[in-house]
Structures are given as C-alpha cells and as structure tokens.
Design a protein around this nucleic acid. Structure first.
Lengths: 216, 216
DNA sequence: GTATACTTCAAATGTCCATTTGAGAGGAGA
DNA sequence: TCTCCTCTCAAATGGACATTTGAAGTATAC
C-alpha cells in the first residue's frame, strides 16, 4: 500500500472540479463522463479508477462542495448584533453563494438543482447543510417576531425570506429572457439584498402585529 | 385522406396526458417513451406515428398544457376591486396552479422544471405565458406602490411576491424532508396565500415609504 | 536496479433507449 | 367484395454512453 501520490490527488481533484461544473450545468443525467474527463484533462477510465462509477463521483462532488463552502455564516458579524443587521447579513451572503459565478460557481447551481430535482444526495444535504442554514434564519426571525411568536408564523416568514433569495437562482433562465438587458449576477447582490431585507423586515413586522391583534 | 378518426384522437390525447405526467415527474431526459406508452396504454411506435419524435412530443405537451390552463386570471374578481384584494386573488390562484395535484397536476411541475432547467420550449413559454402573468402582477404592485414608483422598485417587488410563491413548488422536495410531518399541497393554499399576501403588502408599503423618503 | 503497488491509457463490451421497419387490423367508400 | 387509407403492433436497428479490461507507464521502498 502506497499512499496516494501527488499526481493521483491532482487528477482526483481536477475530476471533482470538472464534474462539479458539468453536473451543475447539465444535471446528473445529462452530464457525460466524457465531457467531465475532457475538462479535467483526464482519461475516461480515471473516473472509474478514482470513484468507481458516475453516481459515486456525484456523491463525492456533493461532499466536496459541502466542504468548500463551509457553513459560512457571515462570519464577520458579532453574535450580539441586532437582528435586523443579522438578517441583512444572512440575505447578502446567501444571495452571494447562490449567484456568485466565482470559484465554486457550480456550488449554488448544484444545490438549486438538488432542491427542485432531487437525487438521493438531497437527504444528506438537507441534514448537513440546509437544516443549519434554516436554524440560523429561524433564530433571527424568531427574535424579530418577538417572544409570543408561534412556530407556524416563524416558519412561514423564514420561507418567505429564503423564497425571495432562491428565486433569483431557480428562475435565472426566466429572468434573462424576461428582462434581456438586465444582469442578475454577483454585482447585483448588494442591491437585491437591500431590497429583500427591507421588504422582509416589513413583512415580518406585519406578521408580528397581526399575531398580536389576533391573540388579543 | 381520411380525417383523424376518434380512435386516433383518443390515442393522441392519452399520449399527451401520460407524457405530461411523466415529463413533469422525471424531466425530458429521464422520461422514457416506454413509460409514457405504458401509462397511455399505447404501443411504443404510437409516439412516433403521432408526434414524429420525443422532442416534438414534448413541444406538443407544452402547447397542450398552455391551452389547458387558460390564462386564468382569477376571473371572478372585478377589475375595479382594490389592489390589495387583487393581489390576494393572484397569489391564491397562482399557488393553486403550482401546488394543485388535480387534473393537469403536471402543469405546474412542468413549468417549474422549465424555469430552472430550460429546454428550447422555455422561450415560447416566457413569451406566451410568463410575460402575461408578470404584467398582471406588475399592474397590481404599481398601483400599490403609488404614482411615483420607479420601475426597479416595481420589478423587485413583483419578483419578491412571485419568489415566495414559486418557492413552495421549486423547493417542495426540500420542504418534505425538512418538515416531515407537514403537508404542502392544495389544502394549504389558503393559509399560505394569507401569509404571503400579508407579508408582501407590508413589504410593498415599506418600499413605497423608503422611496418617498429617499426622493424627498 | 528491481520489485511492487499505484496510476494512466486506448480499446473493447454491454446496456439502455429512441427510432425504424414491415406486417397487419379496422373501416369507409366504390 | 375489393381497395385504399388510417392506425396499431412486435420485433429489429442503431447510437450514445457507462463500465470493464488488460496492457503499459511511473513512482517509491528496499
């Protein structure tokens, strides 16, 4: 047994990157091993040597992606920041992850794909990533809604916030067709975050008021 | 030349319905003609006889779907209804179209699929359907925002509303995993519509206020 | 330097489907 | 009844890919 050589790790790495791109662009089924290997500049058989088969390659990509984008709560935000600012911070970093075309550009796309067209990998993703993000937003919204908030209201508000953000990823193809001139990339994130935050804060406060009125 | 017989139209029809289901469930690529024909109780070759090939079958399904779900603005709402009520009406009927598991259950799913994973058919859909829906919401939001509203604000608000609605379709697989007990089907539409309307009305008003403050 | 395990390679192999084919059923009109 | 269509059927055909194979190549330990 020899430890994996540098060359081997290299090929493996290149395959993961290339596969991430291709899976994100085309989806699991439409992605071909040939194209992945072409982009990774590797032999067809390399995939089967390093990952056994296409499905396990896909699983490895998902794991790799999860590792890349650490949990990344906007780390530069102190925990005692007011909830309004934390909401703004979350929305901005979430949008950035979704719209960024930079390094693991494919990460957001891949996740979005899993959400609307799940493979067995989704179960793992939900457990390990989505739940964490959800809890963070849950805490923020709960604080904004105030002490008496019922779980249903909290959940609905969290989903309203996340829904607004995810829209720009899921419906990107529609947006580019509906507004041919307008860009929806990382440049637009601050502006979008500003809007979604303002919109959502007002929404959350309205739910809080309605709740109190209803209970009283 | 004999006009298409009743039997023929029958088979064609059954194929369209079955294909709609299967395409919605599995996507264009993963759907197999075999399964479509099995569900339609038709022979494999029937697809090629009636539609020439898989792609043209798909196009026919899209057209058929567009025909089915007419433009369906909540028709029972008079045009002079206040904008708040019209917003509520739109949200409810839009959600219903997205979450309904009834007759053309696959319609919403198919559209959602096109949005995040477009085929060439998306261009047509945008032109013929999405733009229409967009314009309707645009008018409502514009009225709510008041006369001075700039186009950017209107657009952002429209997308916030649509984003919240579409979320429940696009992320349905995630929701069922994140909240295993909770249902997200047509039964839930009134409650969801209530929340999204309240949330969005407050959001839109906040944007209107911010606009005025910024301009003044 | 050579033996051994790790890694790459090009060329099969096999499978899953879309698509084609040619032979018939069924029905309307002469 | 005969004939010409329309429509259905079961069995090929063919292509696109994932996967396998066995022969090299390459590094590392000794």
């Amino acid at each position: 047994m020899t430890p994996p050589s540098a060359r081997s790790r290299d090929t493996r790495q290149r395959l993961l990157e290339a596969a991430g791109e291709v899976f994100a662009e085309r989806g699991f089924r439409d992605a071909t091993i040939q194209e992945i290997c072409r982009r990774a500049d590797a032999n067809i058989a390399a995939v089967h040597y390093h990952f056994a088969d296409k499905e396990r390659l896909y699983r490895a990509v998902i794991q790799y992606a999860e590792g890349c984008a650490g949990d990344s709560p906007p780390a530069d935000i102190a925990p005692d920041t007011p909830a309004e600012k934390r909401l703004r911070g979350h929305i901005e970093s979430f949008l950035l992850r979704l719209l960024d075309e930079g390094h693991p550009a494919w990460l957001g796309k891949l996740m979005a794909r899993e959400m609307s067209q799940p493979t067995p990998a989704l179960d793992v993703i939900v457990q390990e990533k989505i739940r964490t993000t959800y809890r963070r937003v849950d805490a923020i919204v709960r604080e904004l809604l105030g002490p008496g908030a019922c779980d249903d209201d909290v959940r609905a508000c969290v989903l309203s916030v996340q829904g607004q953000c995810l829209f720009y990823r899921h419906c990107h193809p529609v947006l580019t067709r509906l507004f041919p001139g307008l860009p929806f990339g990382r440049e637009q994130v601050p502006g979008l975050a500003e809007h979604i935050t303002r919109f959502s804060l007002a929404g959350i406060r309205a739910i809080a008021r309605a709740r109190k009125a209803g209970v009283a």
